[in-house]
Design a binder for these strands. Sequence first.
RNA 1: GGGCUCGUGGUGCAGCCUGGUUAGCACACUGGACUGUCAAUCCAGAGGUCGCGGGUUCGAAUCCCGUCGAGCCCGCCA
Length: 595
Amino acid sequence: MSGGLPRYRTHTCGELRAQHTSTTARLSGWVHRKRDHGGLLFIDLRDNYGLTQCVLKGSSPHLRTAEGLRLESVVTVTGTVVARAPEAVNPKLPTGEIELAVEGLEVLSIAEPLPIQVSGDAEYPEDARLRHRFLDLRREKLHRTILLRSHVIASIRRRMLGAGFTEFQTPILTSSSPEGARDYLVPSRVHPGKFYALPQAPQQFKQLLMVAGFDRYFQIAPCFRDEDGRADRSPGEFYQLDFEMSFVTQEEVFAAIGPVLHGVFEEFRPECVVTPPPFPRIPFDEAMLTYGSDKPDLRNPLAIRDVTAAFRDSGFAVFAAAIAGGAVVRGVRAPQGAAQPRSFFDKLGQWARAEGAAGLGYVALAEGGAKGPIAKFLDASHLGKLRAQTGATDGDAIFFVCERRPAADRLAGRVRNKLGEELGLIEKHAFRFCWVTDFPMYELNEETGKIEFSHNPFSMPQGGLEALESKDPLTIKAYQYDIVCNGVELSSGAIRNHRADIMYKVFAIAGYSRAEVEARFGGMLNAFKFGAPPHGGSAPGIDRIVMLIAGETNIREVIAFPMNQQAQDLLMQAPAPVPPERLKELHIKLDLPPE
RNA sequence: GGGCUCGUGGUGCAGCCUGGUUAGCACACUGGACUGUCAAUCCAGAGGUCGCGGGUUCGAAUCCCGUCGAGCCCGCCA
């Protein structure tokens, strides 16, 4: 190696340009690809920053060593930057105008044959990718996504600080919290039989920070929930942009976070339309009725309509009987659907039955009349009602779902999604945000018949103490809201209940005695007795934000080291057994299920 | 806990429906050829308990049963 140069590199692999021609450069990186012509060898050397073509000629004393290098070995090369002949320029590479004529070669680390290839865009099974995550992370797509995640988080942090929020850290070892999920527990060595819990969210801490007078809190907060994974839900742990504000109404929370989200999405996806703030508000009840979901995808132009009235006294006995039994009928207009072949309707009917529906009714409208299996049961006046209620005209089809609520809403929502996809109606290159507001404070557990919190028990009920004392609990709304983007629930938040007296009552309705409330939430309840500001906030999911921005549908694609659906870390082999003496120290005896 | 789908050399796939040659192809790997490639190319080679167990059959990657693992979904997740 020539002297006087830095030990490993003078430039990165993405840095050299035509202007560096004739200078001596030293690069270090991974052997991405080799092209061996016998007396001429090309090596594409890769690092975090890019790819540089290195060339060794027949005269080189290093040719033999270089030829034998397996892919992904790590080397340092030193040589002269050479301009490529015009016909040899590679326009696909930023460094494509030059190459490094290798004079010195040092092998830093030899790679064994690879279990998954780093170069190329082959797809690999997820367990292999997770087991060799360090290799997967070298691959272009995942490497880029993880860098994007870092940039998104940096942007969010900058925007939050700019909006006057203060960043805090809150405990990881804490006590069991009142969220709905199971806690991860950590045994205490010094307190036999007692456990810490990992926070499902820093909910109580951020509220305590408001009580402590810090006014505007945020944190890129790790959250731990012992629940099963989904494509959009990482088992175990995830991150939230957790924030909270004092002396605010719901509108002021919206006004604070809307521009942050809008700004981040526009910054990283400038080619896309992003809903400008203020985002539309959709009350929960309307969302369920019109979109069949509490997380409506507003890229889909279709709307669900209640058409129960058009069928109540119609000749279609199947629906009429169901309606008499308490069912409702929901209609979804399929624009230009009448032109679809019979197989389209049959396929959707099959799909609906697979979704658990009894079936999927439809009519195809043409020339003022209607076709389809149930059209003959509908006279002109019923058809007129249907047209008026759904906005359908000749050439359209209308699909019908007939079920009891809330199943009818959910199924109609899936029909809306399905039709949007099948008919190609989903808006492309768009991030459509909305607030879903006015969630019910309570809901009825169908199995136990008991009243339970439908969301966060710390939310302020609309109407306050008076509503709690006078109204049917199931009709009470909370100042509780979700941010939804493209049908993905990004966060849920609320104006909190900052009054101890209302809190006792809120919990009493859900069946918690005064003593229980004090035992479980004594810390926060106590804080509210010494002067608590009205406050509220929300907590958009960082992983889901990055997932949307990256255009991924699987949340593990935006996490550097995710666990699999069974909540196992295949790389670090967690969870793992521990030696008996560690268990003894923690006062734990195992009681394992039989094999 | 349940449903659906998948499981074939290191990796991605084909073969399975309709049982019967030496289980085929590509990438990677090993050896060889090759002086301008950029997914280099060409030749040769090595590498497989067809997830595991049982059954049917003269014969099973293929059919049947069970089991294990993975993914997606339901439950669950304010």
